[in-house]
Simulated scan of single mutants.
Amino acid sequence: MKHTLIEGDLLVRDASFAIVVSRWNELITRRLLEGALETFRRHGGAEDNITVLWVPGSFELPLVADRLAKSGKYQAVCCLGAVIQGSTMHHDYINHQVAAGIMRSSQESGVPVLFGVLTCETMEQAMDRAGGKVGNKGGEAALAAIEMVNLLQSIDQNQA
C-alpha cells in the first residue's frame, strides 16, 4: 500500500512570527522568550521578521494572540507564559481558559497559535522547563511554529 506523506520541515525561510509573552512571572517568561528567539535564529529566522509583544499576564495571551493571528501579518503566533500553582485554585481557572482561548484562536484564524505556557506546581518546575534540566518550552513552541507553518504551506501546495 502506497501512501502520501506530507511533513513540515524546520527552516524558517521568510515567514513572519509574533511572540506574545506574559510579564507575570517574568523571571521565567523572559527565559522562555530567549529560548524562542534563539530557536528562530538557529532555524534561519531574521530578527526583523519576529515581533515580540508583552502582556500583563497569561490570561491576556489569547486576546492579543487572536488579534495578531487574524491580522494577516504573521504566519504563526507563539504564546509564552507561566502559571504557577499557589495556595488557591486560581491557577486552574487561568490554565483552562488560556488553553481554550489559544486553541480557539488557532482554529478560527487558520494560523498556528502555539501554547508555550508553563502550568507548573512550583517555581523549581518552571525553571526546569525554562532552560533548565527539562529544556526550554519557549524554544519548543518556536520549533512547533516553524514546523506548522511549513506543514500548512505543504498542504496548500499539495491541494493546488
Rank of each mutant, 00 (worst) to 15 (best):
D92Y: 10
K2S: 09
I155Y: 08
F59I: 12
V111S: 01
L68E: 03
L5G: 04
W54C: 03
R31N: 15
L118F: 06
R104G: 02
E47P: 04
R31H: 13
L32C: 09
E60D: 15
G139R: 06
R42V: 00
G131M: 11
T29R: 03
K73V: 01
V77P: 04
G72T: 09
R129P: 08
D14S: 15
H96K: 14
G44H: 00
M123T: 11
V98L: 10
L27E: 15
E60F: 12
E38I: 07
V12T: 09
T39P: 04
G116N: 01
S71K: 04
A145N: 01
K133P: 01
G135E: 06
K73Q: 11
V117Q: 06
K137N: 11
M1P: 12
R41H: 13
M123H: 10
I84D: 09
S87N: 13
L32G: 07
R67V: 15
R42G: 14
H96A: 15
G81K: 05
A65N: 04
G132I: 08
K73F: 10
T122E: 10
A15P: 02
M89R: 14
L63P: 06
A145E: 01
A100S: 13
I94S: 00
Q85T: 12
F40N: 03
G35N: 05
L10T: 12
K73P: 03
S16E: 07
V113A: 08
L11V: 12
E7I: 11
I19A: 04
L53C: 03
G44S: 05
L10M: 15
L33S: 02
